Computed example of a mutant assay.
Amino acid sequence: MHMMRAHYPAGFRVQPARHADHRVATVLAGTLYVGFGERFEENRLVAVPKGATWTIPARQPYYLWAKEGAVLLQVMGND
C-alpha cells in the first residue's frame, strides 16, 4: 500500500493518465475538477470539493484540473 500527497498550483492540469492499481483520492484543500477518459475534455469535468473522496479504478484513464485555485490532494493505492 502507498499514499502520496500532491499540491497542484492554480491552473495546473494532469493530462490523461492511468495506473495498474485501484486508488482512492481525497481533496484536502481547494476544489479539484476530475474527468475520466482518454482525452482531456472540459465539458466532462466534475467538481470535487475539499473533504470529498472518489475512486480511480485500475487501468481507467482520468485527468485533473486545479481550475479555480491551488489544490492539495491525497491518493492511496496498492501496487
Rank of each mutant, 00 (worst) to 15 (best):
E41F: 02
P16I: 07
H22Q: 13
F12W: 02
T31R: 14
G37E: 06
H2E: 02
H7P: 01
M76P: 01
G37D: 02
H19F: 07
A29E: 12
A47M: 08
L64V: 06
F12V: 04
N43T: 09
L45E: 08
T53R: 13
D79W: 00
R18K: 13
H7V: 14
R23C: 10
W65S: 00
H19L: 05
V14Y: 07
L32A: 10
Y63P: 02
G69P: 01
Q60T: 15
G37Y: 01
P57E: 01
V27L: 00
L28T: 01
L72S: 08
M4L: 14
P61E: 05
W54L: 14
R18C: 05
F36C: 09
V48N: 01
K50C: 09
E68H: 03
V24F: 05
Q74F: 07
A10Y: 04
D21S: 14
V46E: 07
L45Y: 00
H19Y: 12
M4C: 09
A25M: 04
T31H: 06
A70M: 09
A20N: 10
Y8N: 07
A58G: 01
A70I: 02
A58D: 00
I56M: 11
N43L: 10
D79G: 06
N78W: 03
E41R: 15
I56E: 15
V34C: 12
N78S: 12
A25Q: 00
R18F: 08
V27D: 02
Y33T: 05
H2W: 01
Y8R: 07
K50E: 14
L32C: 09
G51M: 10
G11P: 12
V75E: 15
G37T: 01
G51W: 09
G37N: 03
R23A: 11
R18H: 08
Q15E: 12
R23Q: 14
E38R: 14
A10F: 06
A20C: 04
M1E: 04
M76H: 07
F12P: 00
V34R: 13
Y63N: 01
A20Y: 04
Q74H: 05
E38P: 11
V71K: 07
M3P: 02
N43Y: 11
A70S: 15
R13M: 04
V71I: 03
G51Y: 01
Q74L: 11
I56C: 09
V75G: 08
R39M: 06
G30I: 06
A66G: 03
A6R: 15
H2G: 08
E42Y: 02
R18N: 04
G51R: 00
A66R: 06
L32Y: 01
V71D: 05
F40I: 02
M3S: 09
Y33I: 07
R5T: 15
W65V: 04
G30N: 09
Y63I: 08
G69I: 06
E68N: 15
Q15K: 10
H19V: 05
V48A: 08
V71N: 03
A70V: 03
L73F: 04
P61R: 06
A20K: 12
L72C: 03
D21V: 11
Q60N: 10
V14H: 10
R5C: 06
G37L: 00
L32R: 05
E38K: 15
P49G: 08
D21E: 14
N43Q: 13
R39F: 09
G69Q: 07
L73E: 04
R44I: 07
Q15N: 05
G77D: 03
F40G: 01
G37I: 10
E41D: 15
A52C: 06
Q60E: 13
V46C: 10
G37F: 08
H19Q: 12
W65A: 02
A47I: 11
